[in-house]
C-alpha cells in the first residue's frame, strides 16, 4: 500500500502538536491519527484490516465480556498511567470470571488541546501492557470533545474471554466456612494516586499495583477449578468488595486484621490523611473465596506467581443474617467493616 505516504503529506507533529476537533471529525486528520498513532503502536493483523469492527473465531466454551471506563487524575502516576490501567482493568474484570481473555477494544474520548505527545505516551503504554498480557487491541474508536468538556482523555476498554469448562465463579457462591484470600498488599494504587495529586503532596516510594491478573487466575483455576468467588477490589477497596460479596451470597465474614497485608508506606500515608487502607483502591489485587479444603493449595499457587507473592488467607465466610463483615482488630477487639461511604476524603478530625 504505497498510497499511504501520499495520503498524509506531513507526518503527525507528535512533539508539539495537540488534538483539535478535526481529529474526531471522520476526515483525513482522524484517519492519520488512527494510522500513525493507534495502528502503529497497537499493531496487529485484525486492526490492520482497518475495518470498523474485528471479526474472529472463538474457541468453544462460555464467552465472557466486560467493559470499563477509565477516568483518572492525574493521567500519569507512579507505577502506571491511564493507558496501562485501562488494559489491566478490563483484563482483570474478564479474568475474575476465571476466563482467559482473548481480545480488547478501546474507545478514546479526547479533549481538544490535549498534547499529542501525552497521547502517544499513553498509547505506547497501553500497547505495551496489551503485549505483555498477550491480548491484542483489535478495534477501537476515537472522539474529540471541545476544550473544557473532558479531562484530557477518557478511555473505555472492552474485553472478551473464554471460561474453561467446569469453572463456575460467581459472587453469590460464598458459603459459610469458606476461606477468604487476598493476593497481596492492599491500598498501593490509591495511595500512589493520592501522592501525586497536587494539593496533597507527600513523598513516598509507593507505586500503583496496576497489573493484569489473568495469568495468576489461570494458574489458580488450573489448580482449583472450583473457586467460588473472585473479584478485584478496585474502587471502595477491600472492605467494599467483601461487603458486595457478602450481600450477593447472603453471608457474613470474619476477618483478621493482622493477616491483611499492608505496606508500611501505605499505612503511614493513611495515618497522615486519616484514611483507612481497607477502603483504598487496588488495581492489581484479587480476592478469592474457596472451600476451606482448597485454601492452602490455592495459597501456594498464588505465592508462586510474582503477582501473588504476598498472598494471604485473611478470614472466613460465616453465617450472618445481617451480612456484616466483621474484623478481629490487631488490638484485640472487634469491629464491623462497612461499605465505603461517599468518597475517601482526607480529614483533619
Amino acid at each position: 500500500m504505497s498510497v499511504k505516504a501520499k495520503r498524509f503529506p506531513q507526518r503527525l507533529n507528535i512533539r508539539s502538536g495537540t488534538i483539535d476537533m478535526t481529529h474526531g471529525s471522520g476526515g483525513r486528520a482522524m484517519a492519520q491519527l488512527i494510522e500513525e498513532l493507534f495502528v502503529t503502536h497497537f499493531d496487529n493483523d485484525l486492526l490492520r484490516q482497518a475495518n470498523d469492527q474485528a471479526a474472529f473465531d472463538v474457541p468453544a466454551g462460555r464467552l465472557v465480556m466486560s467493559t470499563d471506563g477509565h477516568v483518572i487524575s492525574p493521567l500519569f502516576f507512579p507505577g502506571g498511567d491511564i493507558g496501562s490501567l485501562s488494559v489491566h482493568g478490563t483484563l482483570n474484570d474478564v479474568a475474575m470470571a476465571g476466563a482467559r481473555p482473548l481480545y480488547l477494544s478501546s474507545g478514546f474520548i479526547l479533549e481538544e488541546g490535549f498534547p499529542l505527545a501525552d497521547l502517544e505516551r499513553i498509547v505506547i503504554s497501553m500497547a505495551a501492557a496489551a503485549k505483555r498480557a498477550g491480548v491484542p487491541v483489535v478495534t477501537g474508536d476515537t472522539k474529540v470533545v471541545e476544550r473544557g468538556k473532558g479531562d484530557g482523555v477518557f478511555i473505555t476498554t472492552t474485553g472478551v474471554g473464554i471460561v474453561p469448562k467446569g469453572v463456575n465463579i460467581s459472587g453469590d457462591r460464598a458459603r459459610p466456612g469458606d476461606a477468604i484470600l487476598v493476593s497481596g498488599s492492599i491500598g498501593d494504587h490509591g495511595v500512589a494516586i493520592m501522592s501525586s495529586r497536587e494539593n496533597l503532596t507527600f513523598e513516598t516510594t509507593i507505586e500503583s499495583d496496576s497489573a493484569a491478573l489473568h495469568k495468576l487466575v489461570a494458574s489458580m483455576v488450573e489448580a482449583v477449578p472450583d473457586i467460588h468467588c473472585l473479584r478485584d477490589p478496585t474502587r471502595g477497596g477491600l472492605a467494599t468488595t467483601l461487603n458486595e460479596l457478602a450481600l450477593q451470597s447472603g453471608v457474613g465474614m470474619q476477618l483478621t486484621e493482622d493477616a491483611i497485608p499492608v505496606r508500611p508506606a501505605v499505612s503511614a500515608a493513611c495515618e497522615l490523611l486519616g484514611l483507612d487502607p481497607l477502603y483504598i483502591a487496588n488495581e492489581g489485587k484479587l480476592i478469592c473465596i474457596c472451600a476451606p479444603a482448597d485454601a492452602q493449595r490455592l495459597l501456594a499457587v498464588m505465592r508462586a506467581d510474582p503477582l501473588g507473592a504476598e498472598a494471604a488467607i485473611i478470614g472466613e465466610v460465616i453465617e450472618d443474617a445481617h451480612g456484616f463483615v466483621r474484623m478481629q482488630t490487631g488490638f484485640g477487639g472487634s469491629r464491623v467493616v462497612d461499605w465505603l461511604t461517599g468518597e475517601q476524603l482526607p480529614r483533619i478530625c
Binding site: Q328, T329, G330, F331, G332, G333, S334, R335, C349
Partner: peptide, 24 residues
Amino acid sequence: IFRYGVQDLMPDNVRFVHGPGCPV
C-alpha cells in the same frame, strides 16, 4: 474506641459516653 474495638476489652460495667468533641 470503635476502630480498635476497645469496648471488647472493657468490663461490662464500664460504659463510654460519646461527647460533642467533633468540630464538624
